[in-house]
Simulated scan of single mutants.
Amino acid sequence: MSLFNKMLASIGIGAAKVDTNLVSERIALGGEVKGVVQIIGGSVEQTIDEIYLSLYSTYTVEVNDQKTTRQALIEKWKIVEPFTIGVNEKKEIPFSFKLPLDTPISVGKTRVWLHTGLDIKNAIDPADEDYIRIEPTPVMNAVLAAMEGIGFRLREAECEEAPLPLRRRLPFVQEFEYVPKGGMFRGKLDEVEVIFLPKSEQETEVLMQIDRRARGLGSFWAEALDLDESIVRFQATNADIPHLREKLSTLIQRYC
């Protein structure tokens, strides 16, 4: 019977199960992800070689004018050394780790989740997935609010494959695409794209691509050669928050 149970467990029947419970499913960038991994033993004793937590997101890649979706591993943590789980035994393993600053925030099409996996030799590895809501740092949130405040509307937010000059640790960047809905920029700009490159919880580099509305006889060639686009980089810190609305307005006006 024991041998039969082991054979069943090797294909996932009667094997150990895993469930992750987070203290909170809303986490700010740079904040602590805390929770407990609960393992419940199956019908046979099993050796757990590893428990790992992996943070994932999706991003789009354009191939031959077609968009496809890929998964990206943001970070992976091993939270325990090998141990044995007995028949129907319950174990709870607490964990805590800092959320990477380059994790995309939860807005638009962006989804981020935590994958919990048990590594068991000669068996199908049990797993659990939990979606989490990622919130921006205060300075990032202030930049987004300032864009709305000066007359822009967020049209789309999406993680896309990063061009080589912008590629860092991850294969993608998160882009926030704004269009003017009113005010001084309506009729002058097509869109403004914003990318954050956080340095700390208090500071971020902001990359903006300002797409002017091409006018006149040369408009066709301006758009064809991307001459109607300007790329701007600047630093924003918590100290800038009270003045970000004015700062962004003045900056964007230079490229209208």
Results as ranks from 00 to 15, higher is better:
89 E>S: 03
98 K>P: 00
65 D>E: 14
32 E>W: 06
12 G>T: 01
76 K>M: 09
11 I>W: 11
75 E>S: 15
56 Y>D: 00
30 G>L: 00
33 V>L: 08
44 V>D: 01
37 V>C: 06
43 S>I: 15
14 G>L: 04
74 I>W: 03
34 K>Y: 05
41 G>E: 06
60 T>I: 12
93 I>S: 10
21 N>K: 14
78 K>T: 09
19 D>V: 13
93 I>E: 09
36 V>H: 14
42 G>Q: 01
66 Q>I: 15
72 A>K: 09
11 I>Y: 10
15 A>R: 08
93 I>C: 08
36 V>E: 14
72 A>D: 08
30 G>S: 07
11 I>S: 08
86 G>H: 03
72 A>M: 08
59 Y>T: 05
87 V>L: 06
32 E>G: 09
12 G>F: 00
39 I>N: 01
59 Y>I: 04
99 L>A: 03
55 L>C: 02
51 I>K: 02
82 P>F: 05
41 G>F: 04
63 V>R: 15
75 E>F: 04
21 N>P: 00
30 G>N: 02
99 L>H: 00
11 I>T: 12
12 G>Q: 03
69 T>C: 07
82 P>E: 05
76 K>G: 06
32 E>T: 13
49 D>W: 05
69 T>A: 10
75 E>R: 06
43 S>E: 14
90 K>Q: 12
62 E>W: 07
55 L>V: 03
34 K>M: 13
63 V>L: 14
60 T>N: 09
64 N>C: 10
17 K>S: 09
21 N>F: 09
15 A>M: 02
8 L>C: 12
75 E>V: 07
49 D>Q: 14
16 A>W: 05
9 A>S: 15
78 K>A: 08
85 I>P: 01
66 Q>S: 13
92 E>Q: 13
31 G>M: 06
13 I>R: 03
98 K>F: 04
22 L>I: 11
77 W>T: 04
17 K>P: 00
54 S>R: 13
48 I>G: 04
18 V>P: 02
81 E>R: 08
94 P>S: 15
72 A>H: 08
69 T>Q: 12
26 R>H: 15
35 G>W: 10
86 G>Y: 01
80 V>K: 10
77 W>H: 15
39 I>D: 01
75 E>H: 09
29 L>N: 01
65 D>S: 13
72 A>F: 10
80 V>P: 01
40 I>K: 12
33 V>H: 07
88 N>M: 06
31 G>I: 04
8 L>H: 04
98 K>Y: 03
70 R>A: 14
38 Q>W: 04
80 V>M: 07
82 P>H: 08
80 V>H: 09
92 E>F: 12
70 R>V: 13
30 G>K: 05
88 N>E: 11
83 F>Y: 10
91 K>Q: 14
75 E>Y: 02
34 K>L: 07
71 Q>V: 01
36 V>L: 11
46 Q>H: 01
83 F>N: 02
30 G>C: 04
59 Y>E: 08
57 S>H: 05
71 Q>K: 15
19 D>K: 15
51 I>R: 02
81 E>M: 07
14 G>E: 00
60 T>Y: 11
96 S>G: 13
45 E>W: 02
14 G>Y: 02
89 E>F: 00
7 M>D: 06
35 G>R: 12
38 Q>L: 09
30 G>A: 07
41 G>K: 06
85 I>T: 02
31 G>C: 02
84 T>E: 08
56 Y>W: 10
28 A>P: 09
